Computed example of a mutant assay.
Amino acid sequence: MLRLALYLGANFAILAVLSVAFRLFGIDSLLQANGVDLNLTALLIFAGVLGFAGSLISLILSKSMAKAAMRVQVITTPRSAVERWLIETVHAQADRAGIGRPEVGIFDHPSPNAFATGWNSNDALIAVSTGLLHHMDRGEVEAVLAHEVSHAANGDMVTLALIQGVVNTFVIFLSRIAGLLFDRLILRIERGYGPGFWIVSLIMEMVLGVLAMAIVMWFSRWREYRADAGGAALAGRRNMIAALERLRQAQNAPPLPEEMRAFAISAGRVQALFASHPPLEKRIAALRQGV
Results as ranks from 00 to 15, higher is better:
2 L>G: 10
2 L>N: 14
3 R>L: 15
6 L>K: 13
7 Y>I: 10
7 Y>A: 13
10 A>P: 09
13 A>E: 13
20 V>A: 15
22 F>K: 10
26 G>Q: 08
29 S>A: 15
29 S>N: 14
30 L>A: 14
31 L>P: 06
34 N>H: 10
43 L>D: 09
48 G>V: 05
54 G>Y: 09
56 L>K: 12
59 L>G: 06
59 L>P: 08
61 L>M: 09
64 S>R: 13
66 A>I: 09
71 R>D: 03
71 R>I: 11
73 Q>V: 14
77 T>I: 12
78 P>Y: 02
78 P>L: 09
84 R>H: 05
85 W>Y: 11
86 L>H: 08
87 I>L: 13
88 E>C: 11
90 V>R: 02
96 R>I: 06
106 I>F: 05
108 D>N: 05
109 H>Y: 07
110 P>V: 04
110 P>W: 04
114 A>G: 07
121 S>D: 09
126 I>E: 03
127 A>Y: 02
127 A>N: 01
135 H>K: 06
138 R>G: 03
147 H>I: 02
147 H>V: 02
149 V>C: 05
153 A>Q: 11
154 N>E: 13
157 M>D: 08
159 T>N: 15
161 A>L: 09
168 N>V: 13
173 F>E: 12
176 R>K: 15
180 L>E: 10
205 E>C: 12
208 L>P: 08
209 G>M: 11
210 V>A: 13
211 L>F: 15
219 F>T: 02
220 S>L: 02
224 E>Q: 07
225 Y>D: 05
231 G>I: 01
232 A>T: 01
233 A>Q: 12
235 A>F: 03
238 R>E: 14
238 R>P: 01
243 A>P: 01
244 L>A: 04
249 Q>V: 00
257 P>A: 06
262 A>K: 03
270 V>S: 08
271 Q>T: 07
275 A>M: 08
276 S>I: 01
277 H>Y: 03
278 P>N: 13
290 G>T: 06
